[in-house]
Amino acid sequence: MKKFLLFVAALVALGILLANLGPMILLGISVWLLYVVFKKFMKSETTAGKIGWVVLGLIITSVAVSNVYAVIGLAAAYVLYLVYKHWNNKGDSETEVFTSNDPFTNFERQWAELKK
């Protein structure tokens, strides 16, 4: 049942990722263009050149803000990563069960629980 739910979650996340692929690409391009505009702005020596780069930067910023839905696509990609990571997880069988009263054994058990 767990693998079925992981499969359904992966399908939903894949659909969301594919639906937001265009905005994700445009957001990446606009962030890169903002970086280029910032570098050109810093190298510009004239006031008119700086004003031109600021105007271009504001236009590119408006494109980037309009593609804010790409964050949903990034979240879907992260969900796909989590599903991939937990697909073959065996659960609690990876850690041993300690029943000794030895303080060092109890420490190891508690340390293993903290690592989860």
Rank of each mutant, 00 (worst) to 15 (best):
K2M: 09
K2D: 04
K3N: 14
F4I: 13
F4Q: 11
F4S: 12
F4D: 12
L5W: 07
F7Q: 09
F7G: 04
V8F: 05
A9W: 03
A9E: 03
A9G: 06
L11W: 01
V12I: 09
V12C: 06
V12H: 01
A13Y: 01
L14Y: 00
L14A: 10
I16H: 01
I16Y: 00
L18K: 07
N20F: 13
L21C: 00
L21Q: 14
G22D: 09
M24F: 09
I25M: 12
I25E: 00
L26I: 13
G28W: 02
G28D: 01
G28Y: 08
I29V: 15
S30H: 01
S30C: 03
W32L: 15
W32Y: 15
L34H: 03
Y35S: 15
V36Q: 10
V36S: 12
F38C: 04
M42A: 12
M42H: 10
K43I: 10
K43P: 00
K43F: 12
S44Q: 08
S44P: 01
E45C: 04
T46S: 15
T46K: 08
T47P: 01
T47E: 14
T47Q: 12
A48R: 11
A48G: 13
G49Y: 04
K50P: 00
K50D: 00
W53H: 15
W53F: 15
V54D: 01
L56V: 14
L56H: 02
L56R: 05
G57H: 04
I59D: 09
I59P: 03
I59F: 15
I60N: 01
S62M: 15
V63H: 05
A64E: 03
A64H: 11
A64V: 11
V65T: 14
S66E: 13
N67G: 08
N67Q: 03
V68L: 14
A70N: 05
V71E: 09
V71F: 13
L74I: 12
A75W: 07
A76N: 02
A77G: 10
Y78H: 11
Y78T: 10
Y78D: 08
V79P: 00
L80P: 05
Y81L: 10
Y81N: 04
Y84Q: 08
Y84V: 05
H86R: 12
K90P: 06
K90Y: 06
K90N: 10
E94I: 13
E94N: 11
E94G: 11
E94Y: 15
T95W: 06
T95D: 13
T95G: 07
T95M: 14
V97N: 05
F98T: 13
F98A: 07
T99L: 09
T99M: 06
D102Y: 02
D102M: 02
T105I: 05
T105V: 09
T105R: 06
F107R: 09
F107P: 00
W111M: 06
W111T: 01
A112P: 02
E113D: 08
L114E: 02
L114W: 11
K116A: 10
